[in-house]
Amino acid sequence: MASVAPTYYTNQVQVTDEAASFSPSVLEEMDSHLAKYPSERKRSALIPLLFVIQRERGYVDNAGVNFLAKFLDLEVTDVWETVTFYSMFNLRKIGRHHIQICKTLSCRVMGEPEITEHVCNKLGIYVGETTADEKYTVSLVECLGSCGTAPMMQIGFDYHEDLTTEKVDRILDSLK
C-alpha cells in the first residue's frame, strides 16, 4: 500500500461545515460573555468563548470553530488566526488532565528539571505527549506567576505550588 502523509500535516485540520451545538445553559453562558461588549464588537468575546468551546469539547475542534464563526459573524479563518496565537488553546485532542509545568527561570532554578523528569518518568511519556489512555498530557509552559512558590505546575486550571517529588506523586495519584 502506498504510504500516505499524515493527515495532520497535509491537511492541517480536516475542515467540514458541520457546526457544534450546545445545551441551553452553555448558550446562556456564552451570551453572558457577549453581553460584556458593545453589540457591534462581538469579536471581543472570541477568547472567552474559545475557552467555553475548549471546555465543552475537550479542544478547539473544527465543529467548535464553525459554531463560533457563525455565532460571532466571523470567517473561520478569523477564528483560526486568533486561536493559533494563544498558547492555551489546543487544536488537537489532549489528555483529560493537562499537566503544565512552569519552566521559566525562577521555577527552573528551584528544581523544575527534577519535577519534569519525575512526572515524565511516572507517566512514561515525553513532554508534549499524551498517555495512551488519554488521561494525561504533559507540557512545559512559561512563567505562570508562582515564582515565589516555585517549582509549580498547573493541572487544568488548578495551581500546585512548592512542589517536591513526593507532593507530585500525591497530586497525580489523587487525579481521577
Binding site: K36, R41, K42, R43, S44, A45, L46, I47, P48, L50, F51, L72, T82, F85, Y86, S87, M88, F89, V141, E142, C143
Partner: peptide, 21 residues
C-alpha cells in the same frame, strides 16, 4: 476579560488588540 496565554498581551496596545478578539 480573559487572556489565553501570551506574555505580549501585557503590553498595553497588544492587550487592547487581544481584548478586541
Amino acid at each position: 476579560h480573559t487572556g489565553a496565554g501570551a506574555y505580549i498581551c501585557g503590553e498595553e496596545t497588544a492587550l487592547l488588540s487581544s481584548l478586541e478578539g
